[in-house]
Amino acid sequence: MGNIVFLALRLLRLVWARIPEKIREALLGYGLLFPVLLILGAFVFWPLLEDLALSLFHGNLGNLFKEFAGVANYKDLLDDPVFRKAITNTAIYAAVSVPITMMLALSLAVLLNSKIRLQGFFQTSFFLSYITPTIAAVVVWRWIYERDHGLLNYYLGLIGVHGIDWLNSPEFALPAVIIFSIWKYVGYQVVLFLAGLQHIDKQLYEASQVDGASAWARFRDITWPLLAPTTFFVLLVSVIEAFKVFDVVYALFPSRPGGPLRSALTAIVYLFQTAFEGFRLNYAAAAAFVIFVIIFILTILQRRVFERRIYYE
């Protein structure tokens, strides 16, 4: 038996060696990509088509393609106040948390980029919140946000602000999510910005110092334009991440995902609830497609806007 296997292997080697090199290279290429294409095909490309198909039908869990609906699901979505609320909330979340996080991260990175001791310590501390598993961090923040005994209110109490019900009042639910996400992501962005800053040629700063530029002028005329590729990258990634936000919102308000009066309902949470709590899979598929298109357009748009401004090396 072992002999046969051995012989078969020898034979295979012999045959393999006989195949012209170009064809061997191609076969190897397809072989290496086989798992990649299989998984991406099964879990990205196929689902994208299936999602589109689902969204064009009415159906139920038993029969998802019960009757062709055309664009009816999309029409319903437009009139769905909950969906509109989810999109609006997500947009607000992105529009507030992304710029604040970025400005904060950029300032910290600039400070860190000066000749400073303990750079490693600061970077590590900032980064710690990013690598902390989201749910564990959320659990801690639920404790911090607690109304009566929570730590945030305790400290706010010291400066005379009392009794904010972070997790149960519609006004503060979304801000709570935003504060959390700033805390979580600022360190990660600091690392990216710092990497970008360290790529800028130090001689440029020396030259401008000789030219008599002030610190602000140096930032405006050298740092900002030369950092544009990094800024663009961070912006793109953060906006997309913001539109995908789920874990925080779902876990921060465990009794009612979406927060009080849906005040923190975001797009993916809406998707999840419609599909897996309301079991309206076809309708949710349409929503998913709309969200996909929004993210896609945002990506393209940012690329368009930024491509003109980036100074390529």
Binding site: F43, P47, L271, A275, A285, A288, I295, T299
Partner: peptide, 14 residues
């Protein structure tokens, strides 16, 4: 360009 989150429903079915 295609976030996994928007493919939740078909992937659930699969």
């Amino acid at each position: 360009m295609i976030p996994a989150e928007v493919l939740l429903i078909p992937n659930f079915i699969t």
